[in-house]
């Protein structure tokens, strides 16, 4: 720009061409673009600042300290988790030796007993489900060991694949329409 405000020889604060006065005049006239340029040059006159020597080293040191502290916190937690896991495994393995004596000695209030009954019922239902699943496995074994069974299964798979492909194409087309 003419009379670069950054040139020292132009810096005459009381003369008309000083950057601060040019800026103020441009603001007064409403010349936004010119005012912004002068203000940018004006703020370049602010005292330069920078952090104290060794700033980057302090940042790196802090990062390193945090990494070490994080590793230290992780070790006890991992150890605790491992011990809990082992302890639970041991307790389950030795349950016949300690669970029955404990149950006979401890008089449980009513609601845990009901909860236990419900859990037992759920367990029984799960067993029945598993038995049904095993039963169906026998059926599967029967099918898969006969040629007719294999043909039927292959035909079902083929129909399923074709249906999926058709459905996929339909969905793609409908999303394109959207």
């Amino acid at each position: 720009m003419e009379g670069d405000p950054m040139t020292m020889s132009n810096f005459k604060p009381n003369a008309r061409n000083s950057v601060v006065q040019r800026w103020l005049a441009a603001e007064e006239r409403g010349e936004l673009s010119l005012a912004e340029r002068y203000l940018t040059a004006l703020l370049a006159l602010l005292p330069a600042v920078r952090p104290a020597e060794g700033f980057s080293d302090r940042v790196l040191n802090r990062l390193a300290e945090e990494a070490v502290a994080s590793r230290r916190r992780r070790v006890p937690l991992e150890l605790l988790a491992a011990m809990l896991f082992l302890g639970t495994g041991l307790a389950l393995r030795l349950a016949p030796y300690w669970l029955t004596p404990l149950m006979s000695r401890v008089a449980l209030p009513t609601w845990p007993a009901r909860l236990w009954d419900a859990a037992s019922g759920a367990g029984a239902a799960l067993v029945e489900l598993l038995e049904a699943a095993v039963g169906s496995l026998h059926l599967s074994q029967l099918i898969l060991t006969s040629p007719q069974g294999m043909t039927f299964v292959a035909a079902c798979i083929a129909v399923a694949l074709i249906s999926v492909r058709f459905l996929y194409a339909l969905l793609e087309r409908s999303s394109d329409d959207v």
């Binding site: 006159l45 920078r50 952090p51």
Partner: peptide, 25 residues
């Protein structure tokens, strides 16, 4: 933390500037 000299004081050719101009800066 560390203030560098302003652009007025940093000028290499300080003789161009009169003392009052430096003060004004």
């Amino acid at each position: 933390g560390e203030e560098l000299p302003g652009p007025i004081a940093r000028t290499e050719d300080a003789t161009v500037l009169a003392p009052d101009t430096v003060v004004q800066g």
